[in-house]
Design a protein around this nucleic acid. Structure first.
Length: 189
DNA sequence: TAACATTCCGCGC
DNA sequence: GCGCGGAATGTTA
């Protein structure tokens, strides 16, 4: 049911949102941080007030607020039907993470009563079709490492910085956040 | 069966 | 005490 992707311009670039008959089904990050393609690809649903237009309006506002480090006032309906049961459980947990806070993959796994499934949680995060709105960027690896991110690790770091600054945490972490994307062996702290 | 957006334990420095 | 290497664990295509 994937319809035409709609452009979702923000201060950080143009996102692309795809809607199904049930709601927002997919959200894609801008190709590069400051390269709004912005060619004539902006598909406008000119035919009347479809639900899609309304959802897109809601989604645009939500994304804009998130990128400002604010809690979105309202989320569009999400179409997560494509996910497996396990994946939807994970995504549901992600939606419960307060803005400005983070959880580890292991912690999410433990919340699902599957203490050993940290890696599976990571896989589910990677399969998240609606990043940003389902805050997969708030899930980090144990030991202070950042972990991976589908949209690029740079985005993850950036989003966390925005949220933590807005949430009032001391963003000025002098030396405590070296952001080791990948520590050689694994034992970090 | 192979591949992961991980984690933990054991050892060497 | 810190860092590196390897094995384990659960889900998905």
């Amino acid at each position: 049911m994937a319809r035409t992707p709609l452009a979702l311009p923000t201060r950080h670039g143009v996102f692309w949102a795809t809607y199904s008959a049930s709601g927002l089904a997919r959200l894609e990050f801008p190709p590069s941080e400051e390269r709004p393609p912005a060619l004539a690809e902006v598909a406008a649903p000119t035919t009347g007030m479809t639900a899609t237009a309304e959802w897109h309006r809601t989604a645009s506002a939500a994304v804009a607020r998130i990128l400002d480090g604010l809690e979105p006032r309202q989320l569009p309906p999400l179409d997560l039907a494509e996910g497996t049961t396990f994946q939807r459980s994970v995504w549901n947990e992600l939606l419960r993470i307060p803005l400005g806070q983070t959880r580890t993959y292991g912690e999410i796994a433990r919340r699902l009563a599957l203490p050993g499934a940290a890696r599976a949680v990571g896989a589910a995060c990677g399969a998240n079709p609606v990043p940003l709105i389902v805050p997969c960027h708030r899930v980090v690896a144990a030991g202070g490492r950042l972990g991976g991110f589908s949209g690029g690790a740079g985005w993850k770091e950036k989003l966390l910085a925005i949220e933590q600054a807005a949430a009032g945490f001391s963003l000025q972490n002098p030396s405590a956040a070296p952001v080791k994307t990948r520590a050689g062996g694994g034992r970090a702290a």
